[in-house]
Design a protein around this nucleic acid. Structure first.
Length: 407
DNA sequence: CCGCAACCTTGCCGAGTAGG
DNA sequence: CCTACTCGGCAAGGTTGCGG
């Protein structure tokens, strides 16, 4: 028997999952709509629903569909789930499914290519415990947006309470309420969830951001557009990765929470772990000669090129190395790859994705650079792999291009 | 029914720009 | 200077249409 009790109401779909659901709830009451809905289901989705409804096992997808068409009343609760699946990342759903579903349920969700069907997985997750869908909704976000890497310059010692014990829904909610009161900008922060993950703590906050309006029928409703703030606390809050739309308030919230935890005022600053010219020259030389394992140089942009008038130069290919192009250019005109300070950015192909790398020169020392990369193009797992790869193979610590600054 | 390819849409981000 | 807006790059999902 599925847990989670009663069926979720419209408010659950709309407020917790930010999904326009009323249309689908209405449609699901219509027999003709349901018949069409069943027709449109893919093989794995049919198998999962057939098993979830505990119908007498039959062989073909066609036969299972016939069985399902007789059960619109039992199926209608799955209709919004299909809509929820839209624009949810595969990685997020598969990873969560692996943590909650039995292996045999997972196997029903594979298609002919042995690939998981995301909608089928969500049907199973929903049936097992619909209250876990917000977790999927939240985790989906961490794969899509970039995170600014922030650190405390001198993290205080705090031994009596662990970060995990400190970070509870109720205590955070009251810290957020206090923050909103001091900030006094008419916006409200909502504590949505705290998800422990590999020794880190992901804190999801929804806060009203800019003033906005929408149409309900013909009436304008005034309010705020929501912003999602994700604080990824690590190493006992000595570090935090921040994802958000606005740049200053989320940092203030992180500072507020960390200050409450440590019992005194602390402030996060952008992480600035640097690399040296020599290391970067070595990396660029490997890339330029197609000798960097797992990486292909596909683009280089130089701000002050060797052409007359020093225009910006971009050498780029969609896929495939530009190394021969660079050699040709250097023979015909002059060097473009050896002066790290003049390089605006390069792009490398890593796991078939174009990742931008930028070398940010230190104001004080010409020899030091902060290496930043476009982390949002990689999903969360790939980011960790890429960072470890750059560190292990090239001794270069890379940080996200995302930054947060206090106004 | 299924797989595949081509094309379209969505969401995020950074660069550039106009207008205070 | 700051802010809001637009535009293009990019990944990845969605849709459609075709042939086995």
């Amino acid at each position: 028997m599925p847990s989670g009790g009663r069926v979720p109401d419209a408010d659950f779909w709309e407020n917790e999952l930010e999904m326009p659901v009323r249309y689908w709830l209405e449609q699901a009451e219509d027999g003709r709509f349901m018949a069409g809905w069943v027709n449109g289901l893919k093989g794995p989705q049919v198998s999962v629903l057939h098993a979830l409804l505990e119908l007498t096992p039959v062989e073909s997808t066609r036969q299972k569909k016939n069985d399902l068409r007789d059960k619109p009343e039992l199926l209608k609760r799955f209709v919004p789930v299909g809509r929820f699946a839209r624009s949810k990342s595969r990685v997020a759903v598969i990873e969560f499914a692996e943590s909650v579903l039995a292996l045999e349920s997972m196997d029903l969700c594979r298609d002919g290519n042995d690939e998981f069907d995301v909608i089928a997985l969500l049907f199973a997750i929903f049936d097992k415990n619909w209250k876990s869908l917000p977790t999927v909704f939240h985790l989906d976000k961490i794969h899509k947006s970039g995170f600014a890497r922030m650190v405390l310059e001198k993290p205080p010692k705090r031994l009596d309470v662990s970060l995990g014990e400190f970070l509870t829904q109720t205590s955070l909610a009251s810290h957020l309420a206090r923050f909103d009161k001091t900030k006094n900008d008419g916006r409200i922060s909502q504590m949505k969830s705290i998800i422990p993950r590999d020794g880190r703590y992901l804190v999801f906050i929804r806060r009203s951001e800019r003033r906005d309006m929408l149409l309900q029928s013909t009436t304008v409703i005034h309010g705020f557009a929501p912003e999602w703030i994700i604080l990824d606390f690590q190493e006992g809050a000595a570090k935090v990765n921040i994802s958000s739309k606005s740049v200053s308030v989320p940092l203030e919230i992180a500072n507020h929470i960390a200050s409450a935890y440590f019992g005194r005022d602390v402030e996060y600053v952008n992480d600035r772990e640097h690399s040296y010219t020599k290391q970067l020259r070595r990396l660029l030389s490997l890339l330029g000669n197609d000798k960097a394992d797992e990486l292909t140089l596909v683009e280089i942009a130089v701000d002050n090129g060797p052409l007359d008038g020093s225009p910006k130069i971009v050498l780029s290919r969609t896929e495939g190395s530009i190394s021969s192009g660079i050699r040709h250019f250097e023979k015909a005109v002059g060097g473009i790859i050896e002066d790290v300070g003049h390089i605006n950015h390069i792009k490398v192909l890593y796991r078939n994705k174009r990742v931008t790398l930028k070398f940010e020169q230190n104001d004080e020392s010409d020899d030091e650079f902060v290496v930043r990369y476009s982390d949002h193009t990689l999903n969360e797992k790939e980011r960790r792999l890429f960072e470890a790869f750059m560190s292990d193979s090239h001794g270069i610590t890379i940080l996200s291009t995302e930054k947060r600054n206090r106004r």
